[in-house]
Design a protein around this nucleic acid. Sequence first.
DNA 1: TATCCGTGGTA
DNA 2: TTACCAAGGAT
Length: 309
Amino acid sequence: MTATSECPATEQYGAPELHSPVIEWFSVHARDLPWRRPEAGAWGVMVSEFMLQQTPVNRVLPVYEQWMARWPRPADLAAEPPGEAVRAWGRLGYPRRALRLHGAAAAIAERHGGDVPREHAQLLALPGVGEYTAAAVASFAYRQRHAVLDTNVRRVFARLFRGQEYPPNATTAAERKLARAVLPEEPEQAASWAAATMELGALICTARTPACGGCPVADRCAWKRAGSPPHAGPPRRTQSYAGTDRQVRGRLLEVLRDTNEPVPRERLDQVWDEPVQRARALDGLVADGLVEPLAGGVYRLPQSRPLNG
DNA sequence: TATCCGTGGTA
DNA sequence: TTACCAAGGAT
């Protein structure tokens, strides 16, 4: 009698038979990433999770190393102006993540004695930490039992259990229920399962051309058994970028990142020729706390802590 | 819930 | 070259 036999939903998907091959595959093929080393600690895990939100591993690696060398503890980052976080973020994209990571560090220093909290609810309360990141930190750093549902795991589960090429556009209650149902009972095993299924999605069960030949559970994959049918649902619309406010914001922030001096408005005006959109983008950056307007029509990265957010 | 929020590699 | 895709979160 195993512990998993107490959970019928787990056996419904044959999950117990999948745990070992997936975890063993991970033990052999897992990438040696710096945030997976013991010395990374919970703070290293948290930093990596922020940076990896919508950004590929290869682009994160150098920035992560510099970040951890400069700010080895949350309090080190919290002691600096938020603009320094935005500057160090470089070209990772979505720079609001840098601001939120700085805010999370400040909250950790103030509310948690400088230690990344262990409780999922306390993690979730930090700026920039959503359902995924809270579960990832609790699981990877503290080896707790949480369903970790990122884009990789959602795709693996869609194929393995549901026989579909892609998961729904937005995470559904059914996906959360399934992820909880197939989670190993033992926390240490659950944590390994979470990391292993993510890695499987990143390396083997990829979005475009999955390498099923290297998959440890290909023979039990519902999608493969069904003949790997193409995605049937509505096409997931891809985001446009050229000409959007996002592109303008990116150009404006790039100017401010590359100097320590306040920048005159006239200099910022050169990055985009359409004045209405240009002003909207700059106002948006100021509203987001990514840019600080000074008297005299000059701008810089934020030196002072925002009053909220 | 749909949309907004950057950037760059790949087929 | 365009379109897709990459360890999401906030509103």
